[in-house]
Each structure stands twice: as C-alpha cells, then as structure tokens.
Write a protein that binds this DNA or RNA. Sequence first.
DNA 1: TTGTATGCGTTATCAA
DNA 2: TTGATAACGCATACAA
Lengths: 336, 336
Amino acid sequence: MAVTIKKIAEVSGVSRGTVDRVLNNRGKVSPKTEQKVRECAEKLGYKPNLAGKALAARKKNYVIGVIISSDGNIFFDDILDSIKNEAKIYEEYGIKVVLKTMKGYDIDTQIKLIESIQDDISSLIITPIDENIVRDKIDYLCDKGIGVITLNTDIKNSKRLAYVGTDYYKGGQIVAGIINLISPYANIGIIQGTSKLYGHNQRVLGFKDEVKNYKNLNIKAMFECEDDDNTSYEKTIEMLRDNEDIDTIFIVAGGVYGVCKAVIEKQKNITIVCFDEIPKTIEMLKKDIIKVTISQQPKIQGKKVMEIIFDYLIKGEKPQNENYIIENQIKIKQNY
Amino acid sequence: MAVTIKKIAEVSGVSRGTVDRVLNNRGKVSPKTEQKVRECAEKLGYKPNLAGKALAARKKNYVIGVIISSDGNIFFDDILDSIKNEAKIYEEYGIKVVLKTMKGYDIDTQIKLIESIQDDISSLIITPIDENIVRDKIDYLCDKGIGVITLNTDIKNSKRLAYVGTDYYKGGQIVAGIINLISPYANIGIIQGTSKLYGHNQRVLGFKDEVKNYKNLNIKAMFECEDDDNTSYEKTIEMLRDNEDIDTIFIVAGGVYGVCKAVIEKQKNITIVCFDEIPKTIEMLKKDIIKVTISQQPKIQGKKVMEIIFDYLIKGEKPQNENYIIENQIKIKQNY
DNA sequence: TTGTATGCGTTATCAA
DNA sequence: TTGATAACGCATACAA
C-alpha cells in the first residue's frame, strides 16, 4: 500500500494534522516532532496523492484568469481553442476558467481587463504587453499571491512564474537555415511585422545573425507591414520593383497573404518562407506559393500553459522551470 | 456550486447509491427511477469530478503494463524516458506501472512477456509484432477487459483500443517533399531498414508515391541494411560505386551513421535525409553531413499514450479516437 | 503545540 | 430494488 499522511502519522506516532503541518510548512510544530515526522516521511518515501489534493482543493474554488490579445488576430484561434478545450478538463476538477480577449496591444485596455478580474482569480495566464505599467501590475498580482504565467509573449524582469511560448530568436535562425537548404545563393527580402513587438524583432535578429554564417545569402531589403495584408501587398510590390534580384522572401509575422498576392501577380518564381498556420497560409502552401511555414504549435502552447497552472494550483509548488519553450516546427505542404 | 452526484440525489429524491448505479450503468434500478435520474442529471448538466473518481479508484489498485521492443534500439530511449516520467505522475494517483523491455521482434518472447504480466495488469501498452499470434493474444486480453493500446507500431484488425504513433506513409511523403525543396533534380538512393517491418515499408511506399509527383526526382537504387550501421556502410559504398549519379540518399530507418561514414569517405556532396534524433544523427546534422531529419516525437508519443490510458482507467470510457497520430517533425541543424 | 472531526465527489459494501 | 455508510488522501476549522 502506498504511503499516505495517515500512514506517516501512525508510524511516527503523531496525528495526521501534525504531519500535514510539517509537510506543508504551516509552522506551529515543535522542532522535535517536526524532525521525527520529516525523517519518517523521507524514509517511507512519501509522495502526496494528487487526487486527494485535487479533491480537497475543490473547497478553494480556484479560478484561472486568461487574458489574450486575440481579437482580430486569427493566429490565436488555435491557442484559444486549446485553452477552452483544456478548460473543460480542468472544470472536471472543479477549477473555473475566466477568459477575456482584447484587440491589439493597448496598455490601458489590458490593465483595465486585469483589474476587472483580479479580485476573483487565483492565477492568471496572459499575453502581456511589454511595458512597465503592465510589468508593475503583474508584480502586484504576484505579491498578492496570484501566480502569473506569460503566454506566447514574455515580459522580462517581472515576477511571473514562467513563460510558455516559442524562442523567437531561434525561429529566425531556423528560417535562415531553411532558406540556405532551398537556395544557397539567395537574395532575400524581409517583410517584417512590426518593430514594436519584441518577438518580431527577435526573429529578425536571429535570422540576420544566422545569415552571417552563409556567404551567399544576401539580405536586400526589409519593410514593415504592421501585420496587415494590404500593406504587405503594397510593400512587396514596391520591394520587388526596386530589387529585381530578390528571389526569396521571409515573412516575419502577419500579412502573409498580401505578400503571396503580390508574388502571384508578379509571376516570378520566388521562394517564400513564413510563420504560422492560418488557413490562408496553408492554402498558399498547398498551392506551392509558400515553400515552408514555421508553426509555433499554438495548440501545444495552450495545453502546456494550462497544465502548468493546474500543477501550480493543486500542488502549490512553483513551476520547475522559468521557461517552457515550445518548438518552432517546420512544415511543408506534405505535412497537411 | 458544481453539480455532483449528491446534488442529483437530492433533486431527484433518491440516494447517491442509486444515482451512481444509473450513471454507471450498474443495473438493478427500476426503469422509472432510472429515467428520473437520467433526466435530472441531463437537466443539471452533470459532469463527473475526475479527482473524486481518481481518489475512489485507488481502491482498485490499477496497474499499467508496458511492453516495448527497446533493448538495443536507442531510438526508444526517449519513449522510455517519457513513459517513466509520466509513470511518476500517475503513481501520484496510485496507478502502478510495470515496464518490460525486449530485444527485437521475436514472437515467442513477446507472447511470454505478455503472459508473465497478464494476470496483474488492468491495461497494456505495447509495441506489437504484427503477427496473428500476437493479435489473438491482444484480442484475448481485450475480451478479458484489459484495455490495450498500441504504441509506435500498430496491429491492424485487432481489438486494441487505440494506436499512438506516427503516420509512416506520410513520413515518406514528407521526405519526398523535402528532397524536392532541397534539390528538385535529384538522383536518389534509398537505404531501407527492413522490409519485415510494416512501418518501414509504409515509409518507402509514401516516398515512392510522392516522388511520382515530381518529374525530376529519380529513384536509382534501394538497399536494405537491417537497421545495422556496418551493413548500411557497406551497402552505401556499393550503391555509390554502382550509381555514380546518386546525389541524394534517403535513410528510411536505422543505420544512419553507417551511411554517413560511407558518404564522408567518398567525399561526395550528397544530400542525406533520414529519420529520428539519436545522438549520432544529431551530431551528423550539426556537421552538415545530414541535411534534414524527421522526428517521430518519441517523448510526445510516450506522454500521449499514458494520458490515454489514465483517462481510460479513471473515466472508464474508451478513447474517443482509434488513432492518435503524432506528427512527423522536420528538423534541421538550427533546431538544436 | 497537538489532536480530532468533517468534507471534497465517487464508489463499494452491507443492510433493508 | 433501494438506502445508508464507510473509505479513498488531503486540508482545515475547531477543540484540547
């Protein structure tokens, strides 16, 4: 039979309550008993039973808050789906999930959303805006005992428990590696999302650093499109007009379809590499307009972050790692 | 507050025992009460509480048997690691895991292993040998009420609950797609593992079918190496000697390092694409000897299969899907 | 400082 | 056919 608190109580000759106080560091135990209990638990190899913990935790009415900048950004659909899906599972354990979405990266909106739920939640999942006001707010929540996990985007130097998401820098490196495999003598145009986002910049940085390792890869031009298809279309037209030798385009973030449209119109044989798996992107991949796309594995991100929060709430332990890096996954049309 | 059995009992005016009998189809309930309880549960939106179920399940002393052909096959290391890791978690729920490994694909050995644990287990995870005797044994276990899940390799037309593993056919297709991206005019040599294994054959089949879509990809030769480095080395030397135009090699399964060694000796610029992420393979990838490897995501396979078994045991429901396909993941050196 | 009792939701046993 | 009750392991309010 497994080792339980009851068992330890019997063996060490104290009550279950005392064992509980020792093992969960609740204080109010004499040093002597404490040592006795600890030794005993150690010797018997005590492992807390999660089902018991989870069941007892029902009385606490845990609520997980989720705040995501997903409105109007179709990329987040899969993350949302997977969070909602996991939410169903965790509700089977009596843990509620409150989901709030917002559009874009407005600081005020995000702060207000946090404030609207901060008194009702036991922990928070958030795609934070990387600004001091938000950082302070997150630190405030953490000080209050509300565990915060950042999702998809991180906020450095904050007290958040962990980050779940991709390594953007490495994502850029991978794109460089892919381009080198496909065409080792490439003249490359970059369509950047927005330099306002840390992740986008990191991708570009990783790309540029890795390109340096390949003598025959040349970056010819870079434009920002603000993740917008119309803008990316125009910028691509402009870029291809002014740089006739460009044969490869790296799309850093949004605006994928706009680039494709421009390339299709130009009727040039151009290698396009991009990120994410929104429907239009997959369509373009299947039609050979896009050669490779890199997935952030959004469903895995959603699942992982919920797993971590659950463990944190039930076990009451901080996550073991500070970063849970979800791999950048290379995909070609045969993957679909 | 959430809807519990107790609640349903109160509302429908019967005892908890009766509600339990109805909801778990234990019989011995009058049709009238049954209907009343069912309607009530439906109306209130009853969702069973997993923690409660798991806790009560402790009394059943569930044991998961795991039989894997991993001895001497380093590929399985990651699957084993991840199963052992998950086992720790499930032991926190009071579920034991009994792990048995074997070498190769000997039917007798596998049957004997199954028989050695079949009276002690509540469910079984297995990498089955695709033979009738094994199939019959699996069906026998299923009839006895022991749920069986196949891992990494499937056994068709059996009563196993589900398969967890990759789509081998698609894996072959992906390799063809990759080769077309890297060098659209390729003369390809195939180093097959063994035609005795269904999965290896499926990869070759998928590859050949997909190659048909590309006019300028030509398959020049194919050899079997029995997943052995010495054999693959010799076969590669032979193949390159007899087919001077081969510029691309597709390694279907094991023997990766043997091929690399031969290619290094030949000092020819050859594109190598292979499967899996054993240490030697990653080393060769980092040294640019191998261009691309396809991962079966062994850790994810292990995690998934344990998840499914857990749900099956605790919820007492069969898995929703018959196949849980783990994606073939394309990897280049920048991934590491 | 320590012990006892109760409840979390489900299941099983025993009695009615 | 039904109901009452104890047990799974943990947490906690309350009593000692």
